[in-house]
Amino acid sequence: MSDKAKKPLIELKDIYKQYVNEDVVTKVLHGVSLTINEGEFVAIMGPSGSGKSTLMHILGFLDSISSGYYKFNSHDVSGLSDDQKAIMRRKEVGFVFQSFNLLPRTSVLENVALPMIYEQIPEDERRIMAKKALKTVGLDHRLDHLSNQLSGGERQRVAIARAVANNPSIVFADEPTGNLDTKTGEEVLMMFQDLHKTGRTIIMITHEQEAAEYAERIVSIRDGKIVSDTNGHKRRTGKFHK
């Protein structure tokens, strides 16, 4: 992995973010600068209210910055319109959420194929790509199950398949183990490690040190500022993993 070309995928410089709500200004990020290279597995860690979710939303083109500079793949993406951001999310980003966010009463295969609808990929091709993604998360035997017939761990695996199915540049995971028991959470984290080994760039948001230690680099954030950025920790691997 280390001999991979360290091309910067994300470059943040002096990012500020504030919300104005009924004349009350809430400052969330105070001068965040961060570079993430292609192929990295980064955990962004911090307590609630630290600004880690806002940072992920900005990185994932769900939110805009108030001031500063955001370069994605060497392109300035600081001032994109809503539609431009939607296109970036569609092409470059996959999301895994704490609460899975699968479409209810919809088959596993259709859930995974959903993002590709917006990319206007024809149905046959969508199905092939979705099946492939489901194979990598070990759910290719459950294609026609409905999302509400699955366990929590299976649902999150479907969500992971959905995030990677159209080969995005980067996968964001927002507290992916928050709704899972320890064992299933570990399995999901192992799955991210496996995805990382195949060359994917992954950014995981978490407030748990243990979960963060599955990543190769940990960025700690507190009160809207980065307080530490380490990659020398001992990496965890699951107890249940062979």
Binding site: D82, L114, E119
Partner: peptide, 16 residues
Amino acid sequence: TREIGLRKSIGATKNE
């Protein structure tokens, strides 16, 4: 609402 949020997060534009 959540479905709409999800669809937007995976790249649906306002128009879509």
